[in-house]
Design a protein around this nucleic acid. Sequence first.
DNA 1: CGACCTGTTGAACCAACTCAATTTAGGTGG
DNA 2: CCACCTAAATTGAGTTGGTTCAACAGGTCG
Lengths: 244, 244
Amino acid sequence: MSITTDCADCPLRKMKLFLPFTPEELEFMRHFKTGEVTVPRGATILSQGERSATLYTVLSGLGTRSVMLEDGRRQVINFAFPGDFLGLQAGIMGEMRHTVNAITPMTLCAFSRDRVWELFQNQPARAYDLTWIAAVEEHFLGETIVTLGQRDATERMAWAYVRIWRRLSAVGLAKNDGVPLPFRQHDLADALGMSLVHTNRVVAALRRAGLATWSNGWLQLHNLAALSALAGIPMEKEEQRPIM
Amino acid sequence: MSITTDCADCPLRKMKLFLPFTPEELEFMRHFKTGEVTVPRGATILSQGERSATLYTVLSGLGTRSVMLEDGRRQVINFAFPGDFLGLQAGIMGEMRHTVNAITPMTLCAFSRDRVWELFQNQPARAYDLTWIAAVEEHFLGETIVTLGQRDATERMAWAYVRIWRRLSAVGLAKNDGVPLPFRQHDLADALGMSLVHTNRVVAALRRAGLATWSNGWLQLHNLAALSALAGIPMEKEEQRPIM
DNA sequence: CGACCTGTTGAACCAACTCAATTTAGGTGG
DNA sequence: CCACCTAAATTGAGTTGGTTCAACAGGTCG
């Protein structure tokens, strides 16, 4: 908990993906934040069933949110990107319904679950933002359901590429026509409901088609328009959202 | 808008599925509610892309929340049951990302989008509940993703049966070992990401196996334990949630 | 160096899909 | 009250997208 980022200097908050704070909100958040946590690659940040006393906002690093079934099958519900809020379920409903793992080392802003209520009592604008964050999450999960329910393997992969690429670009991680994508093919397979083998073949097919290259933890999209069309993603402008 | 239900007499709120109101909350909601709407079978309640000025809580009737793709494919994201809140996305994010349709005639409590902010300013407990509702929804969408991503057709159908049966039972719609299920097989197919033909075969298989009978708009589960096991649904107690 | 993790490729198989036709159940008009 | 019409449910048959099984290559690390 040594050296922590002062919210005033938060590099994320300044990105245009996120809504700005008012000075009052900034001041409040500086005290609402209880500390900063750094976890290594592979760490479990929140566990299914756990009543975590701490909630987080991702400052840096990437992770997965997943559910394990009894028989060993795993579904990756979503990824955790910088700016994402982790633990709403623990904070509001009591216990987590999925597990959050760090895929890379991650830095997290920590908040106390017990003080969430304080937010609703004293900071209506921040409480509103928390609900907004939940609504945005709900929207993305709905999109994922559409993808798993209606799209074939190639469309799914294109969809995942474009979604990930957009999001990572929006938080400033794009460099020379690419973004870091440190997940294993296995993770994408579990996120898209496909077998590992088939995931590998689709990745290869998109590469051979000249649409996208994903190798050595780096994703390059060579034809964003074609991929977006394939994925059925409209060219909507990137909307702003709140950040905790 | 003629005769509307006074929140004090709301039949839903008294069900043990939902958390009780305090007297103050009750009083507030009586004025927060702007009216009641009845829509016929087939009506569109909220449309994808719409910035609806009205938000709803389902008082009675069943509906679907779905997304249409350009090429005509449709994914049913979720169903709308009595007690569900409709329009959070319009209320918080601006516009709806999916469409809500009435499958049966529905009665809806109406709220004004413009007064949502009032909730956050003056009724922190109710604002908290709204976030809770969003978190619960998020949880269910996550479960759906798990089902679409990992389970085969039979497991999916069993999962849908048990989920629907539990929810409708919890709002008092069960009669003699069954619940009303007025959806078409087509709706279930679009919800589970399966073809209509295959959905039909799975329905028939579950019937022949003596596990569940769904016909004439009525669903009977003959072996809840076996279906739950097949669906991978733990026998967790039905948890309480807030209602708007 | 050996063990392990991740990615890659071939081959056989099957769950679910598409196409197509038929039955059933309501609903309407003469 | 019956003939007709349409929406929904069913069933058969052939096809296929994606799976499973299995083997192997390249890197990394103790």
